[in-house]
Design a protein around this nucleic acid. Structure first.
Lengths: 222, 222
DNA sequence: CCAAAAGTGTTCGTACTACACCCATGC
DNA sequence: GCATGGGTGTAGTACGAACACTTTTGG
């Protein structure tokens, strides 16, 4: 079956920058392409928008189909509309970024992808299409937004220590933070509470565990 | 001539929120639609993306064709990808916003529009499609961005007074500003310089005229 | 001389920065 | 008992907020 229009129509895809902090680095999930173009090269997960689904729905679907991830923070990033992004036809890509807690990482490669793998964002292989630019913008946006909103907490698992939180902030914004000042700042936000539990991870004082109070919210601050 | 694809393709448009401060209010340029759907109703200027132009180019072209405006600040806002935005077919709209100085306002209605007219953003008529939502997002983005960048100066004519600048800031962000604090803040940005000229507008002390030093730049501050 | 907008400094409070030591645990 | 990361307070600074009077002009 084919579809015919009076004027030429571009194809529309969503591409998703899936970010997490893992092994002490900000990482992005890449997929080795199983089809042309760029077969065998790494790319952001994503795919064509169905005609009867919204872009948000499409992004969420691709996130689940290609990475097996759902129920995470997902936000539109930018729309890339250059004319030669894709060798096949004119393709407009609406990019999204997703934030997932570093712990809950379980990967399943999707149907049209050979493999999925985490890469440190400052050490990615050569990317397909203009995905390097997309990734760059996502990292910039995340870093900026972590300074004026509480999105950063979307990278946290259900329970976490303050040291882990600080580590995530330092890795995602690529800036060191003073431990005492960071904690004062975090508490002033009123978005976490102590669980009462402690977490032991070695021959030293155990750390208190915290949880996010309203996991749904992302507050703007300042 | 027709164009045929193996899978259904959405149409892609750009819509542009053209903002200025005029007669003491933040205003948006609307166009009375000359064609169905929504014939005779007001809408944001915009139109279908050509297959061989980038989205940025498309937005700039629509801006010129429908409003006779070029060479102004134009930035991508958000992409609206709901499924029933347009009764004709699936249409994805990449929204942009443009900022133009309140003085250089000359309007020419375009080819597929009956009339163009400025409306105060908080007193617009009923809009076509989901353009009310688009306009709302543009106003929010402008207000936010005026607080952490120097975009606001894109609303300034070549020469302007500090009172006028303050008025624009107050109208665009809908917040009153203290005159002395506002001036201290503006000077600390280092983006304007005195022209040496003065501007008399009535039976009172004339105001000094300023100009933007690097009109191309938009700096982020903080 | 009067009305009207332009111009100009200081004080205060708050929020960010810098900085160093004791604590609890496992081995 | 020692090595390791967890946890805590204070002092200085810088920036934003509040606030009122004098100046210059046109009529």
């Amino acid at each position: 079956m084919t579809y015919t229009y009076e004027y030429p129509h571009p194809a529309v895809t969503t591409d998703i920058v899936i970010l997490t902090v893992l092994d002490g680095a900000l990482k992005v999930l890449l997929i080795k392409r199983g089809m042309e173009p760029f077969k065998g090269k790494w790319a952001l997960p994503g795919g064509f928008a169905k005609i009867d689904e919204s872009l948000d729905t499409c992004a969420a679907r691709e996130l689940e189909e290609e990475a097996g991830i759902k129920g995470v923070y997902l936000e539109q990033l930018y729309t890339f509309g250059g004319i030669n992004r894709d060798p096949r036809e004119r393709v407009i890509s609406v990019a999204y970024y997703a934030l997932i807690p570093g712990k809950n990482v379980t990967l399943e490669a999707g149907t049209d992808a050979d493999e999925a793998e985490w890469f440190a964002v400052d050490d990615v292989p050569e990317l397909s299409f203009d995905h390097a630019e997309v990734l760059g913008m996502a990292c910039k946006r995340l870093a900026a937004k972590m300074d004026y909103s509480t999105v950063g907490f979307k990278l946290m698992p259900d329970e976490f220590t303050l040291s882990y939180l600080q580590d995530v902030y330092e890795k995602a914004t690529d800036k060191p933070r003073d431990k005492r000042n960071f904690r004062k700042w975090v508490f002033s936000l009123n978005v976490i509470e102590a669980t009462g539990k402690k977490y032991s991870s070695g021959p030293h004082r155990p750390a208190m565990l915290y949880r996010v109070i309203n996991p749904e919210d992302v507050k703007n601050i300042r």
